[in-house]
Design a protein around this nucleic acid. Structure first.
Lengths: 216, 216
DNA sequence: GTCTATACATGGATAGAC
DNA sequence: GTCTATCCATGTATAGAC
């Protein structure tokens, strides 16, 4: 579509990577055309030449980075078939995120989107990539749970994604607290997972009860 | 302790309120000594006279605002005794937060704390106020649930608080998505609440099963 | 002690060089 | 088409007025 020269594309890529690095390492408050350009090793004014405004650079970086991040986990998530597996994968993802910080980056953009109108749609789109993956996993995983037929995977996927962002942000100010939060969730997940092998009779009883009582 | 003059205290209060308003309305990225002072209606340099740096003003505002916010909900949370009541209260809190934005404010500070070292402890302390309240409610509420004896209220309270912050931030970029997330969580809560009145025999069976299978 | 005028640093954006 | 020199706005901080 756009017959882009190699030179232009190289500069753009440098800026996108620089934006991601600056956002994760410095946060939205310290992210500016100058700091990003410094991280990218190019002249500050190129931000405006190639992307128009700082916000549009950040929006583009969000799309660029979110796709790359989700791709890293897509394979692993696709192989998950049970709740306990999902919990294990979730824990692994968190370990990697502690280093990479791609989820906390979404938190920074979410915070920035409050004012910078351009960032809103881009950030929502970036989160949507995560949500899509999570929704697929949840749909598979919840099926084998007594809650399966009642729960809404689409809504839950949004809740999980947003919660994870919140927890990764929380980790920045209280690492021990974040760990205990994840431990507690994991333990809760293990309990629900235990319901998966309740035995067919008991499981049917629970389902039946939920059907009568649990409807809103 | 500090024999503070009425004048000084008045200015400080103006600045604290100005900081809170600016953070909620403009976000951390647009919060500066100038913008806060403008919101407070005082000279910009007073930030530095009364608080030393912008970060310390924000830290103080965080303590000041968090205590005030939590106090608003403390009474209501104290009256909650069941999971379904908790869900109803949670929904009400969210409705009010959509307008007041005190939880999203914590998100802004969480994002800012990434770089501004001073903000970290203050934000953690502000969140801790919420966590304390939530932990008390959870301890009461979980007792009547089959998961009660296994779950860790302290960790779960942290998970709930951080998640709520994430969801309130998410609301800023996708209001419909946030609503569906909360709906899904509420529905899930209703299901767990339904387990509360499983009948004593079935409940004992579930507990027994969890005891054997659900331990980590 | 409280506040204002002012200095200096950083950020956003463009006119014009190559 | 790509980039740099430069301008003006915004932000932080202090010296000194009241």
């Amino acid at each position: 579509m756009s017959p882009e020269s190699a030179k232009s594309l190289e500069t753009k890529t440098k800026l996108l990577d620089g934006a991601l690095r600056t956002l994760t390492e410095q946060g939205i408050a310290k992210t500016s055309a100058r700091t990003v350009a410094a991280a990218a090793g190019v002249n500050q004014a190129l931000v405006f030449y190639h992307f128009g405004t700082v916000d549009e650079l950040l929006a583009a970086a969000c799309r660029y980075g979110a796709e790359r991040s989700v791709a890293r986990y897509r394979q692993r998530l696709a192989e998950v078939t049970s709740l306990s597996e999902l919990l294990a994968v979730g824990r692994r993802v968190h370990e990697e995120e502690r280093a990479g910080g791609h989820v906390a980056l979404l938190g920074q953009l979410l915070a920035g989107a409050q004012t910078h109108a351009t960032l809103g749609p881009a950030t929502a789109a970036g989160l949507e990539l995560w949500i899509t993956e999570i929704e697929q996993v949840l749909t598979r995983v919840l099926a084998s749970t007594p809650f399966g037929e009642f729960a809404d995977p689409a809504g839950l996927a949004r809740a999980v994604a947003a919660s994870f962002v919140g927890i990764e942000l929380y980790e920045g100010v209280d690492a021990a607290g974040a760990t205990s939060a994840l431990d507690a969730l994991e333990q809760l997940g293990v309990l629900v997972a235990a319901l998966e092998d309740l035995g067919p009779v008991a499981q049917r009883a629970v389902r039946h009860h939920l059907r009568r009582t649990g409807r809103r």
